[in-house]
Design a binder for these strands. Sequence first.
DNA 1: TACAATTGTATCAAATTGATACAATATAAA
DNA 2: TTTATATTGTATCAATTTGATACAATTGTA
Lengths: 256, 256
Amino acid sequence: MSYLKQISDKDLKKGIERFVQEAEAKYVPSVTLDTVIFGFHDNKLKVLLLRFAQTAHFVLPGGYLSREEDLDAAALRVLRERTGLDDIFLEQFYTSGNKNRSSNSTAAQLLKEIMGDLPTDHWFNQRFVSVCYYALVDDTKVNPTPEPFFTEFKWFDIEAVPELLYDHNLIVEKALKRLQTDLDTKLVGSKLMGDSFTMNELQRLYEAVFQRPFVRTNFQRKMLSLGILERLEKQYTGKSHKAPFLYRFVKDPLRD
Amino acid sequence: MSYLKQISDKDLKKGIERFVQEAEAKYVPSVTLDTVIFGFHDNKLKVLLLRFAQTAHFVLPGGYLSREEDLDAAALRVLRERTGLDDIFLEQFYTSGNKNRSSNSTAAQLLKEIMGDLPTDHWFNQRFVSVCYYALVDDTKVNPTPEPFFTEFKWFDIEAVPELLYDHNLIVEKALKRLQTDLDTKLVGSKLMGDSFTMNELQRLYEAVFQRPFVRTNFQRKMLSLGILERLEKQYTGKSHKAPFLYRFVKDPLRD
DNA sequence: TACAATTGTATCAAATTGATACAATATAAA
DNA sequence: TTTATATTGTATCAATTTGATACAATTGTA
């Protein structure tokens, strides 16, 4: 799934200028937000990335912190704007603040090509500290919308994330590590799976997140012993073998 | 251990004014750092807190991010300034950014009492986002120094942390939770213990961090099985019972 | 010399995990 | 209709880890 919006260089420059005009008054200086949006389809763990304008470069969906907005609320807003989803599982996991993560980068180069030389006190020449969140979404419900200056979104297999701008590759790695511990300890799997699924599909999720195989029978025993799954009717797939049961996560109003 | 510096209201105000004059040019706007410094003595887990000027209120040691400084480097600098220690174990664990964590607080009140009404665009009236680190120190090596406007430092038992300014109580709680998982998974105990210790002392550390008792014999078995301890000579305490062995953490250049 | 306190180690049962076996389907092929 | 094949659900056994308890060894005191 991927969406491409065409925009001319001139419109892009104009759009960015309009954005900056408002940005200073609207947003807290020096602070950005970046989000690693995880989805699971085709038995693969995926990450939603945005392509920067007409370039070949991808970045994480991100945004700024409004002056009157809580930090978590800003992350939720960014995700809502990007995915159309309101009820999103969200975890802050890292804040990135090396001094040359914004400067010295291909991104600065690209910006220069579009905007020309900017004064040193320009909004985009700030030193930014980025607070990073990861999100888990049921991708069948996601309706991604590109950002103004990011004209294409695309789900990437976690194993095939391209080289990203800024320090975003590092951020993706840290997000995955955190997702691993959270899948273990907070059992957040339900946020990535659809409403119902087979044990096999669940195992694929765990294998995609931990990037290693599990023994089928032991995995099944473990999952069932956790008491987080509810067994539904069988699923007849038309394939020539025993039909698997469907499962769903038990609704636990205490969790969440 | 506690240190008290006397300062007059007038000197305080002058000092703060001098600080602010430099601050704008020197520091990244909107960003602060807070540190939760853990130590272990008298078999208790302790946190180093600073008393705000002549008031009765305590806060976490904190600081600002210099414009030319990496985020981690700033945290190290703050810790060096506060503890005199150079080689400190440090982990970023949370970033706090609710919009009224700085305003609406007793701290704002206090500042007003000292400084009078400040213009809305004053440095201290910024909306700050605070990146939080926890540190583990061998308290026998710490030589704390109070900050300019924080005239006293004091080690508090983690069970007896007073009500702090801003959202610092919340931050301490999150730091402790993170320390628990890190003690389990990264075995960071060595950073809190002195050079050598008895198994009993180590158990006290674990009990202080997890705030629950462990069965002595099983704790000993587990610790020894991890292969992170080296047995030294016996320690004759003069008490009327078997002398315990001393241990130290094995130096593992791969860890850290 | 008996005693109390504490330490180090052993032991047994219970719980968890890893590895393997096997019976029960669902459909396709013979 | 029977046989074959793939996959699923469950059982089982050994190995490992954990919880609970027992006990001998050691240090100094009474």
